[in-house]
Every structure is written in C-alpha cells, then in structure tokens.
Nucleic acid binder design. Structure first.
Lengths: 195, 195
DNA sequence: GTCTATATTACGATAGAC
DNA sequence: GTCTATCGTAATATAGAC
C-alpha cells in the first residue's frame, strides 16, 4: 500500500474516515492504532493528522455524523395520519436506516465509553431526542386509545432494542429481504402495543 | 494500594477476576492494562501471571463462566406446564438473571471481537444453545396454536434483544422494582406472540 | 506468591524536509 | 499534503531474588 508523495486532500479525508469506521467496528476503538488506519488508507501515520486533531475526534465525528444523519432522515418523514401509521413508519424507518449502516450502528453503541465526557454528552442528547420521538408516538396512541401500555418510556426503549437487534443477524444477501424483515418486526411491534 | 510480600493465592485469584470484570466492563478489554488490574487488586503486574497465562484467557474465562452459569441456572427450571407458562418463565428468568450481572452481560456482548477465534467459537456455541431454548418454546406454542408468528427463529432473536435491553436503563435503586419490570416485559412478550 | 527489574514492542503525536 | 524520523510514554510478558 506504499505510495509516493503527493497531495490528495480531497480524497484522503473521506478515506481516512471510511478506514476508521471499518476498523473501529471490526476491532474496537481502543484496539485500533493510527498506524493501522494509515496503512488501510495507504499513507503514513503522521499524515492522518492533516484530517483529524487526534484519535478521539475521529471517533466522535463518526458517531456525531451518524446521529445527525439519523435525525435528519427521520425529520424528512411525514409522521403518518395517526399513531398506528406513525408507529409503522417509525418501525420501518428504524430497520431500514440501521440495517444499511451496520458499522456506524455498531460503533455508536459500543464505543460510547471511549468518548470524552463532553463528547459523550453530545451524543447522548441526540440519542435521547430520537428515543423521545418514539415515546411521543406511543403516548399519542394511548391518548387515542389505539395503543395500550402502562410505561410508554420503557416500551419505547424495549421496542428500539428489539428493532436494533436486527443488525445482529440480518444480512442483505440472506434468506429474507429487508421488506420481509420489516413486515415481521412491524407485526410484533403492532401486537405488542395493541389496545 | 502498595503491599508487602506474602502469599495470598486463595483470595487473590477471585480478586483478580473481579477487578478484571469491573474494569473490562467500564473501559473495555483493549483499553484496560494488566497494570490497572494489578493496581485494583493491590499487587504488581507480574503477580497476575500466577492466576492467568495471559490477558486473553482472563477475558475468555469471565465470558465462559457467565455463559455456563446462564445455562446451568436455566437448566434448573421446570419448563412450565405449557408453552405460555414456559415463555413466561423464560422471560422472567432472562430479565432477572441478566439484570443481576450487568458487568458480565456487558462484557459478553461487547468483547466478542476481542476473543481469539477458538475462544469465540466456544462462546458462540453456548449463546446459540440458549437462543435455541427460546426458539423451541415458540415452536411448541405454534404447534399448540397458542402462539402465532411466521419466523420463530427471528422472533426468538427479537425477544432476546428486547429483554437484554433492560440492562441499558434498569437500576436496582430506580423507580421500578424488578418484579414490575418483569411484568411490563412479560406483557409485551405475551402480546407480541399471541395467537 | 509476590516483588523488582527489564526485554521487547508498540502507541499517539509532533517536527521538519520536500 | 505526505514523507521520514523521533520524542516520550506505556503496553504484555518474563526472569530471578526473596
């Protein structure tokens, strides 16, 4: 992977981030060295510091971008005509979004403890905002008497855990299509909160 | 934490494992040094090698013991009078067992990638055996027409993910008792698979 | 069984040449 | 913007004294 000198700022930056994403997901943040990332990109370790002030920022930027994209994509949806439709939309969106980015999802769940306190607080606030969206859907459905549960916050956490669990077994080349997976999980979600 | 020389084999061994469990759960396997573990125990780093051949074995032993205990405790249960009772028993057992060992659970889910290939295969086989127990309960319930689902394997994975998610928010000193948590989750599980 | 001391290797990050 | 070279530190694991 050795290469001669030259200027490639516009393509090296994204490649550094892509390499870090793949390596952090595979081996864990603490187990990956800057030299490994550089080797994957095809530069020397020192060159990485043209694109990130330090290793911590590299991790944080990956997680921050992931959460921003999640909330942005989610904000682009209509919200549905009622609580049931909104819940179905949330369910399908969550599965689709997360199954398409297994590495970023993995990192965002596993590497929280390797964030600096300040960075952790930022990511946690974004995650909380996403969880709150599901909780509000559940509360609206209770008010409309189409859902029945005693603890909407905990139900929201339980449903998100279930949906994110798709990533532990789903493969795009597996037996089930993403549409079929959505259907199976939407069936469980619908029944679990049904009035 | 410094201490003078002396022989303490019978108490140091468990303390090494306890320190490793706590530190691995808090900071991650790769981020914890043998010196940190030794410091927590109150010995020098070299002394740890009287209790483990290397750091990898320390991690593996923690995970192996956790899985063995899970399967052993589970095997001590009756199984219930029918599929519905069996599912309720599984649900309550899973929540109770996992909520009582948050550190071991955390490690067993997060540090799989830090196991050597051989060790990974052993742990995976044990995990699979546990998942199969839930899958068999679901299949029995389908046969008896008390459960309804199209994919019992995936449903089992979904339910386990949901139940293990309790560990992300539950605190023994929080608002809800463990019995209340069990009740809430059993309600969701029951409805999700109901015929 | 634990200590001190160390061999060997690797880490994150920086400096200055090109 | 990337290179080579390096600073300062810390890692796992081992050896031999007590």
């Amino acid at each position: 992977m050795a290469r001669t000198q030259g200027s490639h700022s516009d393509i090296t930056g994204p490649r550094v981030r892509a390499a870090a994403l793949a390596l952090f997901a595979r081996h864990g943040f603490a187990a990956v060295s800057m030299r490994q990332i550089a080797g994957e990109v095809g530069v020397q370790a020192g060159a990485l510091y043209n694109y990130t002030p330090d290793k911590q920022s590299l991790l944080f930027d990956l997680m921050k971008d992931h959460m921003d994209q999640l909330l942005q994509d989610r904000a682009g949806l209509t919200g549905g005509d009622g609580p049931v439709q909104a819940l179905e939309q949330f369910t399908r969106f969550h599965i689709r979004f997360h199954s398409k980015r297994p590495e970023a999802v993995f990192i965002s769940y596993m590497e929280l403890r390797n964030l600096s306190p300040d960075n952790f607080a930022i990511i946690e606030r974004l995650r909380r905002a996403y969880e709150n969206q599901l909780e509000e859907i559940l509360r609206a459905g209770m008010k409309a008497r189409v859902f029945d549960m005693c603890e909407p916050r905990i139900t929201a956490m339980a449903l998100i855990a279930m949906l994110t669990g798709v990533n532990t077994w789903y493969s795009p080349v597996g037996r089930l299509s993403l549409a079929e997976v959505e259907e199976i999980y939407w069936g469980m979600v619908r029944k679990a909160v049904a009035a």
